[in-house]
Structure formats: structure tokens, C-alpha cells
């Protein structure tokens, strides 16, 4: 009998260690301390024991019961206090952390760069305060030609100006490199224009250039259509229409089918079904000559797109000025 009590004690200790929650505690109580529990049953069994053993057994059993009851109370208190110590209202707000980010225009330039870099284009930069030579003359703008009127220019004086496009970077690159040349030039450009919802006096451009021994208009089309498919999605339609830039011949403008109406015609596309996305063309032989490339050996294409307009279209921003107001509530959206 005394062995049985010892075994029950060991079982009790073992089970007590395993109690982890209220439910386990209740089954533990039922198992050992309830009316039909192990301890009650041991008291019942004791009645059948020889009389001479009864005092010792009774003492042992009473001790067991007392200890068990204390243990149970302790376990009960521990479970309760555990609950109290760890009680956390997890719905309370988290501690604020700083969130930074790139400007929406930088993000747009990044996407454009990514695509062209995968197509093997380098990325070059150049000065914003440029010489008339790099911005106009070397790009086949004759002095006093009406083509200069198309680009309202901020002048510092007769020789220096704020670049009106990133094309001077093309000139600088070709002057310092032998063909083949394949690069894009992102950067800020300036136009002396009134500021309103649709026009800004400074904005970003990405231009590109590919010159080699056998680069054709067909290459231009394939490169730009690949770019546009990645940037605007595979489902848009494109068209190339004739245009004029002094530094390319033939020149073209590339249109994308209107995002909004899908080409049916709406206010956004002025009922044409098309949106202009970039200007392009074959590098004019006069430009190649100006940088010392032989136009009978080399040919190439160039293109340029306005980043701001692209971003406005992409994110449906209605007013270009918003891009430069740097309202933190706007910047946080992107």
C-alpha cells in the first residue's frame, strides 16, 4: 500500500509539472483531488488495510493530500498570475518607425533605366548649364533657325544656356567615344515656358542613342516597341508618325493607344485614340559629322521622352506642378 502511495506521489509530481493552462489544471484536479480522484480512492483502499498499518498510512495519505492541495493552490495562483504578467492588449498601436522613399520621378526614371540596361544600354549624365554649341549647334540647329523657337530657352548669355534637352550628353558621349555607342541619358532640362497644370519650366527627360555600322530605322522600331511593351504593358498598340527634329532624319513620333479609352477616342487623347510618348529618328548625318563619325560608315537612332508626362500618365496625376511641390502627403503615395 505504501508503495502505491509513493507511486501516486510520483505520478502527482509528474502531472503537476505538465500543467500549463486552466484546462489542464482542472483535469489534474479531477484526477487527483476530486471525490473520485486518486487520493480519495487511496483513502478508500486504506479502510481495507490491516489496522496496525492504518496510522502510518493515514499519516502518509494525509500528508500527501495536504501537499497536493497546497500544490494545487500554488498551481492555480501561478496560472492566474502568469496570465496577469503577460496580459497585453495587442490591438494597441505599434511604435512608429521612419519610412523613406524615392521621388515619383526618380522611380519612373528607375523603371526606364532598368529596361534599357537590360537591353545593353549604358547610362550617362552631363551638365545642365550648357554651351550653345552642345545644345544647338552640334545638333544641327542652324543659328537663328525657327526650330530654335520650338524650344523656349533660358539663356545665361549668347554662349551659355540651360539645356533644353539631354541631347548635349549625346554629343559629349560621341565626342569622347568611338562607335559602337549605345546609351541613355536621363536628366533635368529647362524650357522658358509659363507654368500651369500641363507645362513646367523644368522637367526630366530620358534620351537614348544607338550608333553602329548597321543600325536602321527598323532597329529603332524594335528597340522602342520592346521598351514600350515592358513599360506600358504588352497589350498596347503603337504607331510611328513622321515628324521633325533638327538632329534626326528621318524623324518620328511614337504614339501609344490611349490607356483610358483603348483607342476609341476620349478627352485624354483629344479624341484621336493615341497618346504621344516619345520622339525619335535616325541620327542626322550632320550630327554624326559634328562628332567625327563618318555618316557613310555609321548610322544610328536616337530618341527622347519626357519623364514627367510619362509619370503623370502612369499614375493618373492631373497636374504637373504637383510633382515639384514636394507635399509630403503626395510623396508618401508612391
Amino acid at each position: 500500500m505504501i508503495d502505491k502511495i509513493e507511486a501516486a506521489k510520483r505520478e502527482f509530481d509528474h502531472d503537476a509539472d505538465a500543467v500549463g493552462d486552466e484546462r489542464a489544471l482542472e483535469s489534474f484536479r479531477v484526477k487527483f483531488l476530486s471525490r473520485n480522484g486518486i487520493i480519495s480512492k487511496l483513502f478508500d483502499e486504506m479502510k481495507a488495510a490491516p489496522n496496525e498499518e492504518k496510522p502510518a498510512l493515514g499519516k502518509a495519505l494525509n500528508q500527501f493530500r495536504k501537499g497536493a492541495e497546497e500544490k494545487f493552490t500554488a498551481l492555480e495562483e501561478k496560472l492566474q498570475s502568469d496570465g496577469e504578467e503577460d496580459a497585453v492588449d495587442l490591438s494597441l498601436p505599434g511604435e512608429p518607425a521612419f519610412v523613406g522613399g524615392k521621388h515619383i520621378l526618380t522611380q519612373t526614371i528607375d523603371s526606364i533605366k532598368d529596361i534599357f540596361k537590360r537591353m545593353g544600354f549604358s547610362v550617362y549624365e552631363g551638365p545642365e548649364l550648357e554651351s550653345d554649341y552642345h545644345n544647338f549647334e552640334a545638333l544641327n540647329f542652324p543659328p537663328d533657325h525657327p526650330a530654335r523657337d520650338e524650344q523656349d530657352t533660358y539663356f545665361v548669355n549668347d554662349k551659355f544656356l540651360l539645356r533644353t534637352h539631354t541631347s548635349p550628353v549625346q554629343i559629349r558621349l560621341m565626342q569622347s567615344t568611338k562607335p559602337p555607342v549605345r546609351a541613355i541619358m536621363p536628366g533635368k532640362v529647362y524650357r522658358n515656358e509659363a507654368i500651369n497644370a500641363r507645362s513646367m519650366n523644368h522637367f526630366y527627360q530620358v534620351e537614348g542613342l544607338h550608333v553602329d555600322t548597321d543600325v536602321t530605322f527598323a532597329d529603332l522600331k524594335s528597340a522602342l516597341m520592346r521598351f514600350a511593351a515592358e513599360f506600358y504593358g504588352e497589350n498596347s498598340r503603337y504607331r510611328f508618325r513622321a515628324s521633325f527634329f533638327p538632329f534626326t532624319e528621318p524623324s518620328a513620333e511614337m504614339d501609344i493607344s490611349c490607356f483610358l479609352c483603348g483607342g476609341e477616342g476620349c478627352r485624354v487623347c483629344k479624341h484621336t485614340g493615341w497618346l504621344e510618348i516619345l520622339g525619335c529618328g535616325m541620327v542626322d548625318p550632320n550630327v554624326l559629322k559634328a562628332v567625327g563619325y563618318d555618316p557613310d560608315v555609321y548610322s544610328g537612332y536616337a530618341f527622347g521622352m519626357g519623364v514627367d508626362r510619362t509619370a503623370l500618365m502612369r499614375y493618373a496625376v492631373p497636374d504637373i506642378r504637383v510633382l515639384y511641390e514636394n507635399d509630403i502627403r503626395f510623396l508618401r503615395q508612391f
Partner: peptide, 28 residues
């Protein structure tokens, strides 16, 4: 291939990572 804008991009990434927002202002 060359990327002359790569370092500026690293700067932007570093500052974005420690909670700074990029702004672009009028140079005039």
C-alpha cells in the same frame, strides 16, 4: 556598359532606408 547614375541611386537607397523622403525642387 557604364552607369553614371549608379552612385546617386545608392545614395537614394541608403537615405530611403533610414527614413528620408526624396524631394525635387525648382533649380531656378
Amino acid at each position: 556598359t557604364v552607369d553614371q547614375t549608379a552612385f546617386a541611386d545608392e545614395i537614394r537607397a541608403a537615405l530611403s532606408g533610414i527614413g528620408f523622403r526624396e524631394i525635387l525642387c525648382n533649380p531656378l
